[in-house]
């Protein structure tokens, strides 16, 4: 086992003539929080899409521990232990909150496909209790029977977090987990993410909100125009002149 849980090597991604990612090298140590920041259109979400298998890289490869992720389907990559939170929450709007959390719990237990169609959901006590516990963790237990689609955006986001946490992923990718949230909700999310951090789950987080980045990240990579221009601890990045020029535009953080 290499010491890095995520190892992205020489990744390029072209869309026709547009080079969205060029020569990306990214290594993330197990148990750390790694933030990726950068201006809009820098290629942050494209990079996440390459890691989770939604996009195939034009060149290069992605490893999770010792396993090659490149060329695998998103559901296979998820089964290997990569969970993802999307920019706009991807939940099951027509299911209850509890059912939303139960589905990924089944994925964790049963793998890619299982035909248990005569078993009763009611008898799945273990999965239900696990799901209830997860909802309690994110503070949504009292709404467990509500339809997920009827919840507020912040609640949907926390639900999505709970769904991913239920799979106990080795690598947790978060695409702007606090986008569009009020300051109050943002702080609650930060607290939640800090608590998860203590459990030793590795996280890669894309974020615009510097308050979130600097209160969570162990290391930061700065992406601009498809290339990583700087990587280091929050302190180093904060003081790097290239970063200020490319991203912060001289603004003090």
């Amino acid at each position: 086992m290499s010491e890095y849980i995520l190892d992205v090597t020489d990744v390029d991604k072209n869309f026709g003539g547009l080079q969205a990612l060029s020569d990306i090298n990214l290594r993330v140590k197990e148990g750390t929080v790694h933030a990726i920041i950068g201006p809009n259109g820098a290629g942050k979400s494209t990079l996440l899409n390459v890691i989770v298998g939604r996009l195939a890289p034009s060149r290069g490869r992605v490893l999770l521990g010792d396993q090659v992720l490149t060329g695998k389907e998103p559901h296979e990559i998820n089964q290997l232990g990569v969970a993802r939170v999307f920019q706009t929450p991807e939940i099951f709007p027509e299911l209850s909150l509890l059912q939303n959390v139960m589905v990924p719990a089944f994925a964790k237990r049963e793998g890619i496909f299982k035909m248990n169609f005569l078993k009763s959901l009611f008898a799945e006590k273990e999965v239900r209790e696990h799901a209830e516990h997860l909802l309690e963790d994110v503070g949504l237990l009292q709404h467990q029977d509500h339809l997920a689609g009827s919840m507020s955006r912040g609640d949907k986001r926390r639900l999505e977090l709970a769904m991913c946490l239920g799979q106990q992923p080795k690598l947790f990718l978060l695409d702007e987990p606090t986008a569009g949230m009020s300051r109050h909700d943002t702080n609650r999310t930060i607290d939640l993410l800090k608590r998860i951090k203590e459990r030793g789950m590795t996280k890669v987080i894309i974020e615009h909100d510097m308050h979130v980045v600097f209160s969570l990240a162990d290391r930061i990579s700065v992406l601009a125009q498809g290339a990583i221009i700087c990587e280091g601890t929050p302190e180093e990045v904060r003081n790097d002149p290239r970063v200020k020029e490319a991203y912060l535009g001289g603004e003090t953080v």
Binding site: H75, Q79, F92, E94, L95, V103, P104, A107, M163
Partner: peptide, 11 residues
Amino acid sequence: SNQNRMGYTGF
């Protein structure tokens, strides 16, 4: 409800 999420849920 959401086939996209289903894929990223490992099914």
